[in-house]
Write a protein that binds this DNA or RNA. Sequence first.
RNA 1: GUGGGCAUAGCUCAGUUGGUUAGAGCGCUAGGUUGUGGUCCUAGAGGUCGUGGGUUCAAAUCCCACUGCUCACCCCA
Length: 431
Amino acid sequence: MSTSFQNIRGTFDILPDAYTEGETRIASSAEWQAVESVIDDVMRRYNYEEIRTPIFEPTELVARGVGQNTDIVQKEMFAFERSDTQYVLRPEITAPVMRAYLQHHLDQRGGVQKLFYVGPCFRAEKPQKGRYRQFHQFGVEVIGADDARADAETIASMMAIYDAFGIDDTRLRINTLGMPAARSAYVSDLVDYLEPYADELSDTSRRRLETNPLRILDTKLDHEQDLLRDAPILTDYVRDEDRAHYEEVKGLLDELDVAYDEDPHLVRGLDYYTRTAFELESPSLGAQSALAGGGRYDLLAQEIGSDEPVPAIGYAAGMERLFLALDTDRLPEPDRPDVFLAALGDDAARWVFRTTQTLRREGLHVAFDMKGRSLKAQMREANRQDATYTLIIGGNELEAEAATVKHMESGEQTEVPFAELTDYLTDRATA
RNA sequence: GUGGGCAUAGCUCAGUUGGUUAGAGCGCUAGGUUGUGGUCCUAGAGGUCGUGGGUUCAAAUCCCACUGCUCACCCCA
């Protein structure tokens, strides 16, 4: 069996069993479910409610939300046109959530809206380890609060997810980016500072001097880090009130026992971020070391058409990167059949087929063979599926109206009258 | 977009200086048990050796091109 088709570059299939793709293990569908259910549980404890938005949006929303001059908008959008309207597969979920918040007047529900999401995003980057063209993000958006407690709780909830998976070799970095005015004043001073050293900068850093000076702060080259030691510091340009807010956030994180490193060089890639910014990284991920990142985006609502400011903070995290950092042995075992029904002969096969339905209506996980195979093959199948019990039904059992019930692990067999079968199995299966 | 690496069975991989019918382990199917799985034994199915071209009496093996995958740069989750 084969086909000339294959999944599109940078995407992957999630199969019943895990498999490897390059250096990456693609988790099984059961593992994805298990991970999502842990995420759900943490979100519930932190009192977030789920929101689901479409996977495509008007290009304009993304361009305005994420920022016209970001890499995402300039070269990574999966865009298409239909009936003179421009669409994109969403590259992130914050702008869509804010769009939904404004569109449906969620502020009218009262209080602060604490939302979370899990779903696919699309970016036309060249794939590599931990980076896909269709990838999955989960995240939260807290909309309608500028209180520092919103910042601290958001960060704490993010850490709680990784705690729940026992991922502790991480580093949380935080910073404040201030408002755009502070940032642009800072950027121009930073460029002024660095330009005399242009000759000492790497090619990419010299290019960034034009395109994205803030990113130079992120450099991994030691001699560039040395250069930056005496560079102006963003925090010095930030308004007093923003700095005070930042101080408050740090104090609250301390109160919640959330450990962090202050990093005045931390910047974020999307335009909508203001004030608090943070990023969680893990050394176990390879080149794509960011597990999650987020921050405040108090200007986004107005950017996409709100007539009044809406303070908000959130983060986005990569599911694929979570899996890279994860020890899958810690995930719960997948569900297996309570009972496998094996049949000998046509009459028995008919009885088995009918009985699957009765047992399933009682809530049992029931498997059987539909290829008319030998009893031996059916037993093998029951074993492979790791069924707890196997029923053996042949002429003898039909005549006696009692099933042979085999407990697979112990190998013990007993006769159970058809009339008592449901009780017998439900008692033991749910135990 | 720019570089490096890789491409042989469903999976993981052998395959000698180019040489006859391309192999192993695992997995799959079946038999060893006229009605019994896991261990064991036996057998079987499954490959146009990524594609196209070239060199040669002869190519999985050498050369070229292409495609795909992968890792890294860039960027980000």
